[in-house]
């Protein structure tokens, strides 16, 4: 199948780029998935148009590496919704997402996957729909369960990066343990009102424990403003991409504290 696909792309698209219509035609005529079409095209130097404006900031080889990478997002709320959207747009090929919850009206102020007409619907299903409509090539695996270290540990085994988009200290501690057990980097983000924090925990680090162990920051009725959540989510995605590409500087053993009300961004060694 892949050989046929290679020949089709070489014959028809050498030196050109690939529209999404082309991707669909090639998938249909070769029997390959859209993800395989995008991947083989890039291997042959043919750029899918959807990624064209990523290039120069990313090399074609880096774009190709994103497509074959696997990222898990735990939580599909204020942080996770936008994290998923950004991962799909930039072209991370295999995305898994955990959330047991359904949308409620009080999510509409900030959760990008929520809409007035899908209140009561599963967050994971909404995420699957959104990711597919943004980038149908992405392989999306939605898990409609509460993440616990015991339940989730094994599913993280083959993941390259995990995103902590949870909303409680307790759940974050469980996720941190599961990632440490599997030796996977964890990109942490949290938000409250006008404020946000971001940190990246590599295997062997105890950043999440240092933040939360013995502390129970108020979790109920927390306010969160949309721009603070969006900003934290975007910082998290940039960390994920840098980890996959091994590029730039990471927020390792540091914590970034963002204050959008009084305009400050501090990075503290931690």
């Amino acid at each position: 199948m892949e050989k046929k696909l290679q020949e089709l792309i070489k014959d028809q698209f050498k030196g050109l780029s690939l529209t999404q219509k082309d991707e669909m035609k090639l998938a249909a005529s070769s029997g390959c998935s859209l993800l395989e079409v995008q991947a083989v095209a890039m291997d042959l130097g043919v750029v899918p148009l959807r990624y064209q404006r990523n290039l120069e900031s990313l090399t074609l080889a880096e774009q190709r590496r994103l497509l074959q990478s696997r990222v898990t997002v735990v939580g599909c709320g204020g942080l996770g919704g936008l994290v998923l959207e950004e991962l799909a747009r930039i072209g991370v090929g295999q995305i898994s997402a955990w959330d047991y919850d359904c949308f409620e009206e009080h999510n509409l102020n900030r959760q990008f996957m929520s809409q007035a007409d899908i209140i009561g619907f599963s967050k994971v299903e909404a995420a699957a729909h959104r990711v597919h409509s943004v980038n149908p090539g992405i392989v999306f695996n939605g898990i409609k369960r509460k993440f616990t270290a015991d339940e989730g540990r094994e599913s993280l085994q083959d993941q390259q990066v995990v995103v902590d988009a949870l909303d409680s200290a307790q759940a974050r501690l469980g996720l941190s343990q599961a990632c440490r057990d599997q030796g996977i980097p964890l990109v942490h983000g949290a938000v409250n009102g006008w404020y946000g924090q971001v940190a990246t925990q590599f295997p062997g680090d105890f950043t999440i424990e240092q933040l939360y162990l013995g502390r129970t920051p108020g979790e109920e009725d927390q306010s969160a403003l949309v721009f603070a959540a969006a900003m934290v989510a975007s910082w998290q995605v940039s960390e994920v991409i840098k980890i996959i590409l091994n590029k730039g500087n990471f927020l390792r053993q540091k914590i970034m504290l963002i204050d959008m009300l009084s305009l400050s961004l501090d990075i503290i060694d931690f």
Partner: peptide, 10 residues
């Protein structure tokens, strides 16, 4: 002296 409250919301 610096003091910061860890945030937990998502």
């Amino acid at each position: 002296l610096a003091i910061f409250p860890p945030l937990a919301g998502g």
